[in-house]
């Protein structure tokens, strides 16, 4: 089992990569990495093709088409649509189509990474990586995550119950037969769950500092943060002082969060120990992140941020960069826990 913080780091690095990289070769490289990891971690039982692949097949050509039809830049004109066509009239260029396809690929990478993260990290693990001060919010998030699929199932049940009464959705007003029972059912379920949680001791008060103190401390921290930032921005002669105030604000906020968390003791049932795979994946993501944020001195940064405009040229591919980005593939080799099934 991989530590959820490592998965978070991996998903974040993939997000940064998909947002930053537009070199077609690297982005294809990243897309393959994302799909391989998704196949390894996020396929449901009996599923053979990853979800993001299915979406990608639709999304990539659509993004290409949309960009091609709406952007007029580029020298390689494929065809010209009549100018009287609103929004679409004008030249359709190869460059615009390619850039749209690249954006579609980037979106598919993001989708794939989050599908993998979501499937490989159970809701409870996500709750456990939330700082103690935000524990309640984490529990709410966890409940919301389990509530949503239940709600979808309820919508289906209500639709069926209304269909057998001859109900058809023809206009906005017809949705009332769905939304009203859904609302009532959701409220009743929420009350039942709240009751069950209270009966198990959830929400028991812990001795802690005064809420007023917490509010003052947070307000002070935010004021210092904002003040320091404004000083640095508008009073150049006191930039260092501004930095000091800004850091003081950050410290105050972090201190308050720590203090609130400390006053709400929670313990964890599962104590995860750091494994070799956690280290390897963390290292792989670190290398990839380093390449993305601060590429090797001998690599032209523009190679990552390739642009097809004004004329499409063959992009560079630096093997070291490709190798570095392969760090994101390491989760595909890690042992998959039976809990994922």
């Amino acid at each position: 089992m991989i530590d959820p913080r490592i998965w978070l780091f991996w998903a974040f690095t993939m997000l940064v990569a998909a947002s930053e990289v537009r070199n077609p070769l690297y982005i294809l490289w990243l897309l393959l990495v994302a799909w391989i990891v998704e196949i390894r971690w996020a396929l449901h039982r009996g599923q053979k093709i990853p979800w993001s692949f299915r979406w990608g097949v639709l999304l990539i050509p659509l993004a290409g088409l949309f960009n091609g039809m709406s952007v007029r830049i580029g020298e390689t004109v494929l065809l010209r649509l009549p100018s009287w066509l609103p929004l679409m009239g004008g030249p359709i260029t190869l460059e615009a189509l390619v850039y749209g396809v690249l954006n579609g690929m980037a979106l598919t990478i993001i989708l794939s990474a989050f599908l993998t993260f979501n499937r490989a990290t159970p809701a409870r693990d996500m709750v456990r990586i939330v700082p103690k001060a935000f524990y309640e919010a984490g529990v709410i998030l966890s409940i919301a995550l389990t509530f949503f699929p239940l709600m979808l199932r309820t919508v289906q049940d209500i639709r069926e119950a209304q269909m057998v009464r001859g109900h058809r959705i023809r206009g906005l007003r017809d949705w009332l037969a769905i939304w009203l029972p859904l609302l009532m059912n959701g409220l009743e379920r929420a009350v039942r769950l709240a009751e069950a949680m209270v009966a198990r001791g959830y929400g028991a008060p812990f001795p802690s500092g005064s809420p007023m103190g917490v509010q003052f401390s947070l307000a002070g921290g935010l004021t210092a943060l904002l003040g320091g930032w404004l000083v640095r921005l508008f009073v150049p002669q006191h930039r260092d002082a501004g930095l000091g105030v800004l850091l003081l604000g950050v410290g105050l906020i972090l201190g308050t969060v720590w203090w609130v968390g400390h006053a709400h003791p929670r313990t964890g049932y599962r104590n995860r120990s750091w494994t070799l795979w956690d280290g390897l994946i963390g290292l792989g993501c670190g290398v990839a992140a380093w390449i993305l944020i601060d590429p090797f001195s001998w690599v032209d940064p523009q190679a990552l941020y390739y642009s097809p405009y004004p004329r499409l040229l063959l992009p560079d591919f630096h093997p070291w960069v490709g190798l570095g980005l392969l760090g994101l593939l390491i989760p595909a080799f890690a042992k998959r826990s039976s809990e994922i099934d």
Binding site: P122, A123, R124, I143, T146, R192, L193, Y269, E339
Partner: peptide
């Protein structure tokens, strides 16, 4: 309707 987590343990 009373479960908060997703696994038995």
């Amino acid at each position: 309707s009373q479960f908060v987590m997703d696994r038995v343990e």
